[in-house]
Simulated assay, not measured.
Amino acid sequence: MSWLFLFIAGLMEIVGIIAMKKLVSTGKKIFLLAIAVQFMLSFGFLSLAMQGISMGTAYAVWTGIGAAGGVIVGVIFFKEQTSFFKFFFLFLVIFSSVGLKFLS
């Protein structure tokens, strides 16, 4: 169950990043509320995940999900620039997160 909580925490992190991008691009203050809610949910699920997963592993995987998800969402929905190296290092982040899961 801890890994499910960690995955949900990572998804909430991605949604928070999307809300942050929308705040910057539109200036609508409603996105501040969305950011606060999403990051509170993200931290809440992260704390639940840490009850069964070591802190270092949980934090590394959580940040990996958020970083990888942010890059993927940026490329797909916000038409951000892509390159071989961007996807190479994205693969390393994902591969490292999966490796940490198998080690714990």
Rank of each mutant, 00 (worst) to 15 (best):
W62S: 02
A36D: 06
I76M: 12
F5R: 11
G64Y: 13
V61L: 06
V98E: 08
G44S: 15
L92R: 01
M20N: 10
V73M: 11
L48Y: 12
I30L: 03
K22D: 04
Q51H: 10
S97I: 02
K22V: 05
I8A: 14
E13S: 14
Q38Y: 08
Y59G: 08
V24K: 15
S54P: 11
K86N: 07
S104G: 13
V93H: 02
L103D: 09
V71L: 14
Q38K: 09
L92G: 00
I17D: 12
K101Q: 07
L90K: 02
K86I: 15
I8R: 09
M1E: 09
V93T: 10
I8L: 15
I18L: 11
I65T: 06
L103H: 06
I14R: 02
A34V: 10
S47F: 13
A19Q: 05
G44M: 11
F7T: 15
F102Y: 12
I65C: 04
L90P: 05
T26E: 00
Q51V: 10
F45C: 09
K86D: 04
I30R: 07
F5K: 15
L4W: 12
L92F: 14
A36L: 14
M50K: 06
F45K: 06
F88P: 08
K86V: 14
F91C: 01
V73D: 06
L23E: 00
V98S: 05
I18A: 08
I53R: 10
F77S: 08
V24P: 01
